[in-house]
């Protein structure tokens, strides 16, 4: 029954991922948000590695290593640097207050589990029970993107969404083919790079990273 034992760890990590998503939703400081994002990446990498080991899917090791390298080391480091350079680590109030956001989050989790139910029934993987959590992470990150008005938190929300999608891929199918995963990782990397340039442009032009200044383009 070793498999069941691994499975329990994977389930534990899945629960941890969900908790981190909620923590991110309620976090007001940018630096703490980056730290949470790094932890989310770490939990994802660990769970992917355990799934790889217990099911003998070797390509998942690469995927786990990629997550570790990009989302636990490179990107948080880059974000820390960005935050320090731009000096934007102030408390930011989200658009909707945090208790309300949490309540909406809970509703989203229930919805996600319902959405995932028919798929996980068909799935043959041992990790199918975590698919609901993966969907919930995607939706919670989406919510985070909507409720934040600052540039960096929005992007962290976007990357957290990507984490959720990777987790979904692992739980439903033991990951996508390696080429695709490499391509996706490359895109994410380039995306963060583009974002870095972009944030400096925004800063130069508006003297702030608050996206509230960017609501001029509307239909009259």
């Amino acid at each position: 029954m070793t498999l069941a034992y691994h499975l329990q760890i994977v389930n534990l990590l899945a629960a941890l991922l969900l908790l981190i998503s909620f923590a991110m939703l309620s976090q007001r400081r940018v630096v703490a948000l980056v730290t949470l994002f790094a932890w989310q990446g770490a939990a994802l990498a660990t769970s992917t590695a355990i799934v790889a080991w217990s099911t003998d899917q070797h390509h998942l090791y690469y995927s786990a290593a990629l997550t570790l390298l990009l989302k636990v080391i490179a990107m948080p480091w880059y974000f820390y640097r960005l935050v320090r350079k731009l000096n934007v680590n102030r408390v930011v109030e989200p658009m909707i207050n945090i208790p309300t956001t949490m309540l909406i989050g809970i509703v989203l989790v229930i919805f996600a589990f319902n959405l995932a139910l028919p798929i996980s029934e068909i799935s043959g993987t041992v990790t199918r029970s975590t698919l609901g959590i993966a969907m919930a992470i995607v939706l919670l990150s989406f919510l985070m993107m909507i409720t934040r008005t600052k540039a960096i938190p929005q992007v962290i929300g976007f990357l957290a969404m990507e984490n959720g999608l990777f987790f979904a891929a692992t739980s439903a199918t033991y990951g996508m083919p390696l080429v695709v995963e490499l391509g996706v990782a490359l895109d994410v990397l380039v995306g963060v790079f583009v974002l870095g340039i972009f944030i400096f442009q925004i800063r130069e032009t508006f003297d702030s990273l608050d996206l509230k200044h960017m609501e001029k383009l509307r239909e009259k």
Binding site: V138, F158, A168, F198
Partner: peptide, 24 residues
């Protein structure tokens, strides 16, 4: 800049949904 940010975020979210479709 505002237009580009909107493009970046909206198409990013859109394309993330497409990724989920591809996973399915």
């Amino acid at each position: 800049l505002e237009a580009a940010w909107k493009y970046f975020i909206l198409c990013g979210v859109g394309i993330a949904l497409a990724l989920f479709g591809t996973i399915l």
